[in-house]
């Protein structure tokens, strides 16, 4: 049991890294770098899953880590980068309104997340009990990104960051969901990104831009 505190500390470092990456994504203007940040989030997730697998001796989590590595570090960023290149928006930077306000709201969300997770963390028996707050914070920050962003590609990246937060929540509170469910979720996410990809082209064909401000025709009259 003497190895546990060190592993826990390492895990906390990884969790903090995940949170920092979320903040970095919140204020990153360039689409291409945003994809790279998303891949980094996936890499941190893989590392934390491996660490939990090793400390808790859970073989199925190794599979789960492998799945994360292939889907979240390999496949999805590759798909997104290819899309971004084909759409010709890789150098696009979108004007972000009011970065300081965004950061402050983000901070408030983190505090809220920790407050909400407190009573639950106290019940967890896993080595990762303190990290639920961070997972929830990552989820809420991804939400904020979804709301604050204006282009289709960045909204999708926000959506995937949300998925990352959910995955971290699953591993940190319960040592991961059963394998079949994880596979199903990964499949859904993958199909979702394909559908999103189809959409990008449809949106651009119809609106000549990926800026979602053009998508405001359907209002209540």
């Amino acid at each position: 049991m003497s190895a546990l505190p060190f592993a826990t500390q390492l895990l906390h470092v990884l969790a903090a890294g995940l949170l920092l990456l979320s903040f970095a994504m919140l204020t990153q203007r360039r689409t291409r770098r945003l994809v790279v940040l998303l891949a980094w989030q996936g890499a941190v997730l893989t590392a934390s899953t491996l660490l939990i697998a090793a400390t808790a001796h859970l073989p199925h989590l190794y599979w789960s880590a492998a799945l994360t590595l292939t889907v979240k570090v390999g496949l999805l960023p590759w798909l997104l980068l290819r899309l971004v290149r084909r759409l010709g928006v890789e150098r696009d930077s979108e004007p972000l309104v009011n970065v300081p306000t965004l950061m402050l709201v983000g901070l408030a969300l983190v505090i809220f997340a920790f407050g909400l997770a407190q009573p639950i963390s106290a019940l967890a028996t896993t080595v990762t009990r303190q990290t639920l707050g961070i997972a929830l914070a990552v989820i809420l920050l991804a939400f904020l990104m979804l709301i604050a962003r204006r282009t289709a590609v960045t909204q999708v990246i926000g959506f995937l960051a949300l998925e990352n937060g959910l995955f971290f929540a699953a591993t940190s509170t319960t040592y991961g969901m059963p394998m079949v469910i994880e596979l199903g979720i990964a499949l859904d996410v993958l199909v979702g990104v394909f559908v999103f990809g189809i959409f990008f082209f449809q949106i651009r064909e119809q609106f000549d831009s990926l800026d979602l401000q053009h998508l405001e025709a359907l209002k209540e009259d």
Partner: peptide, 26 residues
């Protein structure tokens, strides 16, 4: 245009909604 906009809205709103449901399931 209108149908793509409707589908995008449907996708994002229900996608986020269903992500919340996943957190609940966890």
């Amino acid at each position: 245009r209108a149908s793509i906009e409707a589908a995008w809205k449907y996708f994002i709103l229900c996608g986020v909604g269903i992500a919340l449901a996943l957190f609940g399931t966890i």
